[in-house]
């Protein structure tokens, strides 16, 4: 990602929108006990398109914003989301992210990492009460819902971040397409 005022503004806008939507719309909608988590999807999408450093920074900012908005323990969400952003970004840097359906497993893995790591951090920090085994079911539901939402959310994030992206994975894929086959004349571009 090209670090600029516009890029920061775009990411900030994206995170603010995601936080408001998460708290006002998605959180009250429970599907089979669980709920979709838009913020981690946005962090994963930003990391997927912009790389590990930007993913890490976006994750940190998203967590900070979430903790501010919800009144949760400050720093806990930042810690986990920064790690998630970094992980997804590294995946994008190491593997070829050109497959159009790749956002689905990426979103699922990022969400799974987020819910498990956040649960672990919460346990370590302050949860003293007895925890129901149903928490595990809710986590699975969240992962599945996020996998379902992955494609539209990733597409939306890409659209918003595109002007600031140094390398767009989909552009890379387009560039890597093999050249069209030559005509019998041996010349390209004058096919019948």
């Amino acid at each position: 990602m090209i670090l600029s005022g516009g890029a920061v503004l775009r990411v900030a806008l994206l995170l603010l929108l995601a936080t408001v939507l998460q708290l006002s719309v998605l959180s009250p909608i429970a599907v089979a006990g669980g709920q979709a988590d838009l913020l981690v999807l946005v962090v994963a999408a930003a990391a997927y398109y912009a790389g590990s450093i930007s993913g890490c920074a976006t994750g940190f900012a998203a967590g900070f914003l979430l903790d501010l908005a919800t009144g949760a323990t400050m720093g806990a969400s930042s810690l986990v989301l920064a790690a998630v952003g970094y992980g997804v970004g590294r995946f994008r840097e190491v593997r070829d992210p050109s497959n159009a359906l790749l956002p689905i497993p990426v979103a699922a893995a990022a969400t799974a990492g987020w819910v498990v790591a956040f649960a672990a951090v919460s346990f370590m920090l302050e949860v003293g009460a007895r925890v129901s085994p149903l928490v595990a079911r809710d986590m699975v539901v969240t992962v599945l819902l996020n996998a379902l939402l992955a494609l539209p959310v990733f597409a939306g994030c890409r659209r918003l971040l595109r002007p600031s992206l140094a390398v767009d994975p989909r552009e890379l894929r387009r560039r890597r397409r093999p050249p069209r086959e030559a005509t019998p004349l041996g010349l390209r571009g004058i096919e019948p």
């Binding site: 890490c56 940190f60 400050m74 720093g75 930042s78 920064a82 920090l125």
Partner: peptide
């Protein structure tokens, strides 16, 4: 970012 998070925590 991890250190910052831990400091905030």
């Amino acid at each position: 970012f991890v250190a910052l998070s831990i400091v905030i925590l």
